[in-house]
């Protein structure tokens, strides 16, 4: 119970700090729109198959999400807040989960705003399988944030931070992004998750569970040494 309370405190702190400036969320959403516009020059919107558009959507989410994740630990560096957080009587796992949950909610907000924009720009009727799509968005986003938050902690104090985070996260995220792309690609055509695609759902769940466990176990080494 105490652990859950600590996780909640950290999450609430991060959300409050972000909502006062909204710098990461605004930048991330603006970036998502910029990529959506740029992609329109690559794909001629009328003759692109829907599954391809589902894949492009996750590239937009991954790129835009990195902007939020980059800020997560970088925000704590000025005024030595990170040292204070590590010295505070909470476990590294609670600190990590709190931050990961806050990042998850922020990235999810950006995605849920970007999704209708995507639907309008590319004439995709994404609401046909609304709840199943939401499930995929939630699972995929958790995969992105759990890896992103760990690597955000890993890269916070190093040179070339902004370059290193995407360089390290994207190859690692490949299975999660691939699963989410495949599922989204088939869901936007109106087909529900069936025997053909359920493996991707299992992959996504397995990825999330495995890397959440690995992160919670190893994050203490990253934060404390």
């Amino acid at each position: 119970m105490e652990f859950a309370r600590l996780v909640f405190v950290i999450m609430a702190k991060d959300l409050r700090a972000e909502l006062r400036t909204k710098e990461a969320v605004n930048a991330s959403f603006a970036f998502a729109v910029v990529i959506l516009v740029l992609l329109s020059f690559v794909v001629e919107s009328n003759d692109v198959p829907l599954p391809v558009l589902g894949g492009l959507l996750w590239l937009v989410f991954a790129f835009a999400g990195t902007l939020v994740l980059n800020r997560s630990f970088a925000r704590e560096v000025p005024n030595d807040c990170l040292d204070a957080l590590i010295a505070a009587p909470i476990s590294g796992a609670a600190l990590f989960l709190g931050k990961a949950l806050a990042n998850f909610l922020l990235v999810l907000v950006v995605e849920l705003v970007a999704l209708p924009v995507f639907g309008i720009f590319y004439n995709v009727r994404w609401t046909q399988q609304f709840w199943q799509l939401m499930l995929v968005v939630v699972l995929g986003t958790w995969g992105v944030t759990v890896i992103g938050t760990v690597f955000s902690a890993l890269t916070v104090n190093i040179r070339l931070r902004e370059v290193m985070l995407p360089m390290l996260t994207y190859p690692m995220l490949l299975p999660a992004l691939l699963g989410a792309m495949e599922l989204t690609g088939s869901l936007v055509t109106g087909a529900p998750i069936g025997p053909e695609t359920v493996t991707w759902l299992k992959l996504l769940i397995g990825f999330d569970v495995l890397f959440t466990a690995a992160s919670v176990t190893l994050v203490e080494f990253i934060l404390v040494g």
Binding site: L154, M172, L210, F221
Partner: peptide, 9 residues
């Protein structure tokens, strides 16, 4: 830590 993550991946 990164090496362990890579090996799991």
């Amino acid at each position: 830590v990164f090496s362990i993550f890579a090996f799991i991946d």
